[in-house]
Structures are given as C-alpha cells and as structure tokens.
Computed example of a mutant assay.
Amino acid sequence: MNLSTIKYFFKETFHALVRNSWLSLSSIGIVTVSLIILGASLLLVVNGEKLTNSVESSVEITAFLEEKVGKAERGTIEEKIKADPKVEAVEFIPKEQALQDMKKSFGDRAELLESMEESNPLPDSFRIKTKEANAVPVVAKALEKVEGVEQVRYGQGVVEKLLTITRWVRLASVVTLTLLTLAAGFLIATTIRMSVYARRREIGIMKTLGATNWFVRFPFVMEGIVLGLIGGLLAVLVVDLGYLSLIKKLQVSLPFIQLMNDQKTLLNILGSMIGLGVLIGALGSWFSLRRFLKV
C-alpha cells in the first residue's frame, strides 16, 4: 500500500462522512447512546460488586471459650483454628477488651455497664475471618467440635441468605451486562449496515470498474472506525461527567454510600468503552459489506 493509496482512503473516508452527514450523525448518535447505557450499566455492576465484597468481608465468626480454658489450652485452640486452610486471620479477644468494645457500642449509655467491671461475665473469645465468605458456615461447624469452645456465633441463617443473595447479584450482573453488550453491538451494526445499504450503487460501480474487495472495503472500515471513535468519546464524556457529579452529590447528601472512586478502574472502564466503539464500528462495516462484495 503506497502513500497515494493511503491519502485516497483518508480522502474518501472524509468525503463519505460529509456527503452522508445525516447517516453519519445517526450512526454516531446510536453508538453514543448505546455506549452510555453500556458504560452506566458497567459502573453499576462494578459498584454492586464492591458492595457485595464489602458485605462479605464483614462476615466473621466469634468462638467463645469455656471459662475453665487456661493460657496453654487457649494457645492450642488458636493453633487448631489457624491450621484450617480456609481461615485467613485469627484474633484473640480477652473478656476485658470485649467489655470495652461493648461499652463503645452503647455510646452515651455506657454507664449502664459499670457494674460489670468488678465481675466481668463475658468470656474470652476468638474472632475469625475466612478467606472466602462462603466458607464461614463450614468453619463455624468445625469450631463447634473443638474442645474448649463453648459457643460459636456467625449470624447463622442470615449469613447463608446473604451469601445466596450475593451469588444471585453477581449472576444477574453478568447476564445483564452480556445482554446489553449484545444489544449495543446489534444496534450499532444495524445502523452501519443501513449506511452501507444506502451506498450500494457506489459499491457496485467500484466493483464494475475492477476494484478489489479490500480496496472497496477499507474506506468503509475506516469510516466505521471514525464513527465508533467519535461515538465512544462522546459517551465517555457523558458517563465520566455524570458519574463524577453523582459521587460529589452523594458525598454531600448521603456520605454513608461510598461509590467506586478508583481512578485506574474508572479509566479502564472508559477506555474499554472507546475501544468497544471502535471495534464494533470496524466490524460492523466489515461484515455489512459482505453481501455487496459477492461476485
């Protein structure tokens, strides 16, 4: 491919975009709207995953020890807990610390617990975190059989329901995102196919004059890339400004809701939107030309 051919392709692409301005604007609009919906859905999925992980990470097990357990036995119990490959961290909570934590949770009513200072009825305990949230019920059942452990609590019943909900949330997110991606691709490809169809005579004339398939196809593919790029950039601008504005508003009105604010993750999402726009634009043009290039 020589320089004059490359110049011709760029020239034809520019002229085609200007000459078919309404179709070009329509294609850009479809690309932009489709990618805005897709980008917003992707951000929703990412924030849903963040919330799910946050909820799962807060699930922990508390193993209360029998009053007769001494320091040596306590160490043995701790080693048994740590030996479980599903356990990530173990923290010993003496009954004095447990009482102080309870006072903090009572806030202004902490004086109600002052009578417990002399004869603290709370037991020593271990606070256990598992590597995966779905391992909590299994580890808890194993702890109940350990000698010296009087009682095990982990929110039995609630945790199982929580884990079921998080699994369904993840599945629904994947299915929704996949369907939206396919829908966006279909809409964009259909719009580009309409643009190609409107210029079928032009393609026929070029073929009659002896132009090769790739010579006919290349300007259209470049046109699709440009349309996808412009639509992707517009979608990124709208999604980025809208999302950052939403974060600022929530920080003022609902500070307890923490949305994903990692710049690297956000840039990856925005970059993938642009890349997807370019890819669908190129592939849409490429495949839409097949029926008109058949001899």
Rank of each mutant, 00 (worst) to 15 (best):
T5A: 13
N20G: 13
S21D: 00
I28N: 02
I30D: 04
T32C: 13
A40M: 13
S41A: 13
L44I: 11
V46N: 14
G48V: 07
G48I: 03
L51D: 06
S54F: 06
V55A: 11
V55Q: 02
E67T: 10
R74W: 00
R74L: 13
K95G: 03
E96P: 00
G107V: 04
A110Y: 03
S119C: 00
P121N: 09
P121S: 08
R127T: 08
T130A: 09
A133Q: 08
P137C: 06
K141D: 14
E144I: 00
K145R: 11
V146F: 05
E150Y: 07
E150D: 12
Q151L: 11
Q156K: 14
E160L: 04
T164R: 14
T164G: 15
T166D: 14
R167Y: 14
S173E: 14
L177Y: 02
T190N: 15
V196H: 02
R201G: 02
E202V: 10
I203D: 00
I205Y: 07
G210N: 07
F215R: 09
G224Q: 06
I225R: 00
L227Y: 08
L227D: 02
V238Q: 05
V239T: 14
K249T: 13
K249L: 14
Q263K: 12
L266W: 05
L270D: 05
V278H: 02
L279I: 11
L279H: 00
I280L: 11
G284R: 01
R291D: 06
V295D: 10
